[in-house]
Design a protein around this nucleic acid. Sequence first.
DNA 1: AGGTTAATTAACTGATGAGTAAAGTGCTGG
DNA 2: CCAGCACTTTACTCATCAGTTAATTAACCT
Lengths: 118, 118
Amino acid sequence: MSKVLVSMDQLSTTLSALADPTRRAIIARLAAGEATVNELAAPFDMSLPAVSKHLKVLERAGLISRGRNAQWRPCRLEARPMKEIADWIEPYRRFWDGSFDRLESYLQEIQGKESDQG
Amino acid sequence: MSKVLVSMDQLSTTLSALADPTRRAIIARLAAGEATVNELAAPFDMSLPAVSKHLKVLERAGLISRGRNAQWRPCRLEARPMKEIADWIEPYRRFWDGSFDRLESYLQEIQGKESDQG
DNA sequence: AGGTTAATTAACTGATGAGTAAAGTGCTGG
DNA sequence: CCAGCACTTTACTCATCAGTTAATTAACCT
């Protein structure tokens, strides 16, 4: 009864790539401009292969791309997958800002009272 | 040489909770209003305990809260953790929209040329 | 009390993820 | 040509995750 995961959808891949503080830190660093693997690895208390793996995850998610320059592999940010997250999350905005918030909590109070009595 | 993960930061927890299509579908359903566990489970081809586990993940991430109404445990959306994602992602917006995009690629081209020659 | 429904917990399995050390690849420069 | 630098790949460990079935808790209803 093998359940094999065939392929992850783009949004899941992007979110899980970003659900790691090391990888988010790498992304943040790359927002300031290209960097090599060693440069990216420097701030972290982990081996180079570990960082290399993180970069591979980011690359597979399309969040970075890598060039080649002699023995260096400069990484650059590709923010488009993040746009997908922003687009996905946008419709939920109404749940946390604007007057809807107050309406929500009002409805919650009402509902709570009704449950207490019913 | 045990490396124990003490506790995940909020953003990582939220992102990893949302990096699963089942959980995102649950969230989407809850955007339409409260629902019980059985109602939430109905659309999925998986056991009730599996859904229950997904709900626990969402609850631990603060993305849902659960009330009690007789034998039902109605779930409701709590979108605030999503706001954290939106806030985190906001500064990257400049990387995918507006004229900055063109400026970026221009700068990257320049940089590439310079590297080739240096 | 006892049966039914709603949901969670427990115990287990197989897959994936994050890290390591050590070996391999590919390029540069004396 | 070969020493060394910049990485990547491999092979391994250990923890966590997603799912299962079976058992348990909790509330309702007659």
